[in-house]
């Protein structure tokens, strides 16, 4: 019914190439950070950088930026399910 594709006017070759540059720089950063041997903090930093990369891919490459509220909101559901699943599993593992 909706033939028009919402919001694609904003996407351009330039946006995508900037996104890719940022992704490559972040990939380099995560390798560089690993060389610093920060111990326990390194996993946190690695996951933060990975999540930032994932967010860039989702937001620009996967067009989440241009989508309706449903997509943005619904996306939180699997993340919440995963967080709770891992959190409750750790309630067992941590205190066993």
């Amino acid at each position: 019914m909706e033939r028009k594709h919402e919001g694609h006017e904003a996407a351009s070759y330039k946006t995508y190439i900037f996104t890719w540059t940022a992704l490559v720089l972040l990939a380099a950063a995560t390798i560089a950070v690993a060389e610093l041997h920060m111990g326990a903090a390194s996993i946190v930093v690695a996951l933060l950088i990975a999540s930032l990369k994932a967010a860039l891919i989702l937001y620009f490459f996967m067009h989440l930026r241009y989508e309706k509220w449903f997509f943005k909101l619904a996306f939180l559901l699997p993340i919440l399910v995963f967080m709770f699943s891992i959190g409750f599993t750790f309630l067992d593992v941590l205190y066993r």
Binding site: A34, H37, S42, A46, L47, I57
Partner: peptide
């Protein structure tokens, strides 16, 4: 395709960059 890329974004530091 992008989703598969995202999975790799997590797999890479979690397997190759453990310090």
């Amino acid at each position: 395709w992008h989703f598969v890329d995202i999975v790799w974004v997590y797999l890479f530091p979690l397997f190759y960059l453990i310090t």
